[in-house]
Design a protein around this nucleic acid. Structure first.
Lengths: 219, 219
DNA sequence: ATTACAATTTAGTTTAGACTAAATTTTATT
DNA sequence: AATAAAATTTAGTCTAAACTAAATTGTAAT
């Protein structure tokens, strides 16, 4: 009774878009996230509701049942563990792994994923700083804030990035921004609104949009 | 223009069933191997011929083109490399890996597979003793013969097993037959036709069918 | 050379998942 | 409260890949 790839991807999308948890997610939001049509989403929501992975009300949207949450969380777990493997064992870079993990996360085998977890040393975070749910679906939340929210002279460590877009990640790498990078906020350029930060005495500019996707733990 | 899983599985089946290479493979043989109907196979053969992965003649069967051979060989490469990973890195047993590798082989990424190959130390054989094609599709053939062909008092090393059926492999493990096992032929039981062999002084019986699927390098 | 049987193909359905266009419901605005 | 706009659903199609049943072709046996 395995789910299809499409069904799994819908559940994952609903989990991703549910914040706060249990929030009803709209048809259009799912369609936008999965780059598909609203009509296709409606069809799938009916099917997933039939199978009791979601609660669905016409014209109101959908939210995951416990069962649906469990499945979506395990997909996230698998995705992130595979990303760790690709970077830590195979030596790939953080911009190369998301797309491959999108495929690997659908491999069906509990034994496999538990062995992989053990092989990797039970990592708690993936290469983008996202927490990895354990076999029970629990994960560590850390207090973090977007770089764009720092006040001048505040400083911290980059602990996560939002957005898996490879060109965004390569952009950060080029600028010297990685997980663990120590970064100090200098302020906002009055004229062009770019954000001025420094990394190891070196000044650089980031757009607001970029800075919003970099997460910092203050020190 | 990636192939679908189904298309890939058909190409792999045709490669598996083509011996000698370039032999026309019959519709029914493919249907039996893939456990599907002959009608479905006919449909797919037309599609694969259209895309020039096979040569197909109505009522005569199919054979792979160079392009088709290349793709099927890369699937075998991926399948066997993943099997090595599952056994060597994750500590799975040889009866657990085939089914998972059937899924993993479809993951699309040349970079991934080259990194995996390197990570594993460029293995030449998988956990069942089957040769692993290199990135150019070349692989090592070893001279080997079925255990059932040994004459009394001949001895050798188990270097491969045919058949990925987990219960067959577990049966061998229980009897103490693994890759590298030193085995001596004692003869055939005149009454029940079972094959008598010894492993490290210990005698055991194998059915002819089992012995045919164990491959030996004479010493 | 017929004929019977086996192998294969064709024809017609089915299911999953997508699509577009049209209809309906919700929401936002006056 | 009425209506325009936005969101969502319904209706009808399409493609991939499977199926069964019927028709066709190939092969083996008399």
């Amino acid at each position: 009774m395995g789910l299809t790839y499409a069904e799994e991807n819908y559940l994952k999308a609903i989990l991703r878009l549910s914040s706060p948890p249990d929030m009803m997610v709209s048809t259009n939001a799912i369609a936008a996230h999965l780059e598909t049509s609203a009509a296709s989403v409606t069809d799938m929501l009916k099917k997933l509701a039939e199978k009791e992975f979601i609660v669905y009300q016409r014209y109101k949207g959908a939210s995951l049942t416990d069962q649906g949450t469990r499945i979506a969380t395990m997909l996230i777990r698998k995705h992130r563990l595979w990303e760790v493997f690709l970077v830590q064992s195979l030596g790939m870079t953080w911009d190369e792994v998301h797309e491959i993990a999108e495929e690997l996360e659908h491999i069906q085998s509990d034994l496999l994923i538990e062995k992989l977890d053990s092989f990797l040393g039970f990592p708690k975070f993936d290469p983008h700083g996202d927490p990895i749910p354990n076999a029970q679906g629990k994960y560590t939340l850390r207090s973090q804030l977007p770089l764009s929210d720092l006040k001048p002279d505040q400083e911290g460590i980059v602990i996560a990035v939002r957005e898996s877009d490879p060109s965004f990640l390569r952009h950060l790498t080029e600028k010297g921004v990685n997980l663990g990078t120590h970064i100090t906020m200098n302020g906002t350029d009055a004229y062009d609104q770019t954000i001025l930060v420094s990394i190891e005495e070196k000044q650089l500019n980031l757009t607001g949009k970029v800075a919003q996707n970099i997460y910092i733990k203050l020190i």
